[in-house]
Amino acid sequence: MNRNVFLPETLPELLELATHYPDAVLYAGGTDILVQLRAGTIAPPALICLERITALRFIREQKNHLVIGACTRLTDILESSPVAAHLPVLRKAVRVLGSPLIRHTATIGGNICTASPAGDSLPALTILEAVLELHTSEGARRSPLHEFILGPGRTARRPGEILTAIEIPKPAGFNIHHFEKVGQRSALAISIASFAALLHMSDSGVIEDARLAWGSVGPTIVTSKAAENALIGNRLNHDVLTHAAAIARAAVSPIDDIRASALYRRQVSGNLMLRLSDYRHPATTDTRHIL
């Protein structure tokens, strides 16, 4: 108890604090850090709260990208029309993250920097090929999301470095945006397994392109070129999906924990693919239908 809590209002103020107090813990919404603080699993000498930095809260639509400020709250993402129009897979993932109370507070940058294997936005951001913008008082750099998250709770964030924005290319051509998570209940459940998919289905129902990612079934987000290739050139029929599901079960590397066994997670990672059969008829692939 009795540690300082800094409340910077601008990015330069924040960068100065982050340089000056390298041992301070940053928090945006605090939905994870403040729980850890209370549980005593972290005991930083000081905290830096990011909630007042309005310059880090924005959703900007550009020609080929959306850029989302790191401190944008999940509620703002859900209410954003550019996100609904261009990133339905992200919207679907955020919609089942936590609860309305959590989403009013929690931020997209927080979900990334927490680097939980169960972070619900991460499979979607991975297949959307999100690129992170990171700043220090010295300068800026960019990093693809998949290179930034190293393991459970571990990122490539350098001391004094701040995640400022997430740049997400508008995914051209993908007419199916799918996300599903399995938890012990529907709200406020930490994912046991989650699955995000972007598919380009032709008018005749053949998959032309596919990007797939699983959450909560490995130390970081799992992707599988082999499972994607098992869909490409095929229709979403039972045989194709069963074959791809078997590949997915081989690709994941889940653990046993208090929420589920590794065996269950492996099985359900494949089963989640079978849900893609809901989109097997081209008439159902309109993204408006699946929102």
């Binding site: 809590v5 800094f6 409340l7 919404g29 605090g30 939905t31 403040l34 729980v35 209370r38 905290l47 709260c49 909630e51 109370l101 959590i102 507070t105």
Partner: peptide, 9 residues
């Protein structure tokens, strides 16, 4: 949630 907010906020 007031359990996830600190005085400074």
């Amino acid at each position: 949630l007031s359990c996830l907010m600190l005085a400074a906020q």
